Simulated assay, not measured.
Amino acid sequence: MAKHVIVLSLVALSFGFLAFAFEPSPLQDFCVADSTSSARVNGQACKDPGSVTANDFSFSGLHLPGNTSNPNGSRVTPVSVAQLPGLNTLGISLVRIDYAPWGINPPHTHPRATEILTVIEGSLQVGFVTSNPNNAQITNTLHKGDVFVFPVGLVHFQRNVGTGNAVAIAALSSQNPGVITIANAVFGSKPEISGDILAKAFQMDKSVVNQLQAKF
Rank of each mutant, 00 (worst) to 15 (best):
A136N: 14
T114S: 12
Q125I: 04
F148N: 02
S51T: 13
A45D: 13
G122A: 01
A45Y: 05
D56E: 05
D48K: 03
D196H: 03
A100C: 05
C46W: 08
S38V: 11
M1L: 14
S93M: 00
V76L: 13
D196V: 04
D29A: 15
A171R: 01
S173I: 01
A136F: 14
V41S: 06
V126C: 05
M204C: 11
V95A: 11
F17K: 07
S9K: 10
D98A: 09
T163N: 15
R112N: 04
R40Q: 15
I169D: 02
S131I: 06
T53P: 09
L198I: 09
N184W: 01
I120P: 07
F187Y: 10
F59A: 08
L62Q: 08
F17Y: 13
S74M: 09
N72G: 12
M204P: 10
L94Q: 07
R112I: 00
Q175W: 00
A199Y: 02
A166P: 06
I116H: 00
N140H: 13
F128P: 12
S80M: 13
I92Y: 06
S80R: 12
S207R: 11
A171S: 15
V161Q: 10
Q175A: 11
D34E: 07
G86I: 00
I6N: 11
I138S: 08
G153C: 01
L10F: 12
S189F: 09
N132M: 07
S93Q: 01
V161N: 08
F15E: 02
L90N: 00
H156P: 05
F15R: 07
A45Q: 06
E121V: 13
T109V: 14
H63Y: 11
V186D: 01
I6T: 13
I182G: 09
L124N: 03
A45G: 09
F216C: 15
A136K: 15
F20C: 14
A82P: 02
I116T: 13
G195V: 02
Q125R: 15
T53E: 03
K47I: 01
T139G: 03
Q28H: 11
T130D: 04
H110G: 05
V179Y: 00
P151R: 00
S74K: 06
A199G: 09
I169F: 15
A183R: 09
V126R: 00
P133D: 07
I6M: 12
N70Y: 01
A82I: 08
N132P: 12
G91Y: 00
Q44P: 04
V129W: 04
G162H: 10
Q158I: 02
T118V: 15
H143F: 11
L198K: 03
F150D: 00
N67G: 09
G122W: 02
Q158V: 00
S35Y: 13
P151N: 00
P133A: 08
A136E: 15
I180N: 12
I193C: 04
Q44E: 10
V179M: 07
V179G: 05
R75W: 12
G66S: 06
L84W: 03
V149R: 11
Q213K: 13
A19P: 03
K200Q: 12
H108E: 05
I120R: 11
F20S: 14
